[in-house]
Nucleic acid binder design. Structure first.
Lengths: 216, 216
DNA sequence: TGCATAAAGTATCGAGGCGAAACCAATTTG
DNA sequence: CAAATTGGTTTCGCCTCGATACTTTATGCA
């Protein structure tokens, strides 16, 4: 390819939106761009081991959710997908031998999902783990800042989206952080995702990060 | 739903992988989780105004790339998709009147792409802008830390993926940051994405963030 | 108790995104 | 000047996912 062959034509269009160019970008705009790009890469990263991103995310959820949240409905709510879609995802995971469905005897409509040993082996090779590794090599202060910033970003984003079906933390934060989670009885319950303590009226507020439900 | 009705059955399976539970998660693991979740939300966010995420990303790229990078091939390389796929994306954007294709008279194989006025109006309503807004409301220090951390994360991730087609910055960083970009002749060229200066052998290194190509 | 309504889950259909491969045209290279 | 390369498009088919309809079980209200 030619390097710089003395362009004769002036490139007017590049001067059109100087504010949009990187040199002039604010930190906020950079973060938005990076989140977008990283999201794409993370997605790409997850076409591995015969699973697709949705399947990986479901498996990840199922590995972390408490017992009564490991249902197709729980996955659907968490991933923001329809039950029909999730039913297929779950079926796929089951046919691959990564999870097992057992009907609940408490409510015969629901089926409880558990990871099989194979599933645990699979989750141990989680491709997003490599993000963890990279961040782990940074200094602790930066990592902590990122958790804080990204956590707040996600919380705000979920509020922004508003209509999304994230329940109220009233009774108890439904899943995740089962032992550090939003237990009413605890002195300072903490949200499982952002790790921030929920004081005062917190248990009554929307659980912006994850789901809500009955107690553990 | 019942709150805590005195469960008789012990929930052994929840104690299986205590290290995976949020309370015990490292900052690094939290970041990985947040990136993944945010990526999903960002993706969802972009099903708006009749475009899909790929189309929004292409439009965003086309709005920021320099003149000689605004080609189907440039978009494909940037988004990590095949040329065939991008051809469809570009066609979609064109049929919506957001971009215009004009054949290059320099090389009759390539076609140059420009945003139409309609396209500029569209990009002004970019849905990821809301991330920018949220981050903009945070303190500058946090935002700066996030840019730094996420930038490094992305750089490492791109290196990690290795085989991905990101060129060498030898001649010049191909697009983005056209005025602050990797100009060989400049004293301290800077990468358009991370904003970090590329000293010494930098121009010879892989342009981890974006593409490479001939000079501006 | 009994009937209506709601909720969990599944099956089926169809739209759309995307990669693979074949192909065309133009350019570069030996 | 032929051969190989490169930019781009088209066609094909797989796969994901939402919408809809349906089944089964729970719940709520008279």
């Amino acid at each position: 390819m030619s390097v710089n062959d003395g362009l004769t034509q002036t490139d007017t269009s590049d001067q059109r939106t100087p504010a949009a160019l990187p040199g002039a970008m604010s930190h906020a705009a950079r973060v938005a761009e990076l989140i977008d790009r990283l999201g794409r890469m993370t997605r790409e990263l997850q076409y591995v081991d015969g699973l697709n991103p949705a399947q990986w995310e479901a498996l990840r959820y199922l590995n972390r959710a408490n017992r009564y949240s490991r249902t197709p409905g729980g996955v659907a709510e968490f991933l923001g997908a329809t039950k029909g879609t999730i039913s297929q995802t779950v079926s796929a995971l089951e046919s691959k031998g990564l999870i097992a469905r057992t009907p609940s005897d408490r409510d015969k409509r629901v089926c409880l999902i558990d990871l099989t040993d194979e599933g645990h082996r699979m989750i141990a090779r989680d491709p997003v783990r490599c993000i963890e590794t990279i961040v782990g090599s940074m200094d602790e202060a930066t990592a902590a800042q990122m958790v804080s910033g990204l956590g707040r970003l996600m919380a705000s984003l979920q509020i922004e989206l508003g209509s999304k079906p994230f329940g109220v933390c009233a009774a108890c934060c439904r899943h995740l952080a089962p032992e550090s989670g939003c237990k009413k009885s605890e002195a300072t319950p903490k949200c499982g995702m952002t790790g921030e303590p929920l004081q005062g009226d917190a248990p009554q507020r929307i659980c912006v990060n994850y789901l809500n439900d009955a107690a553990e």
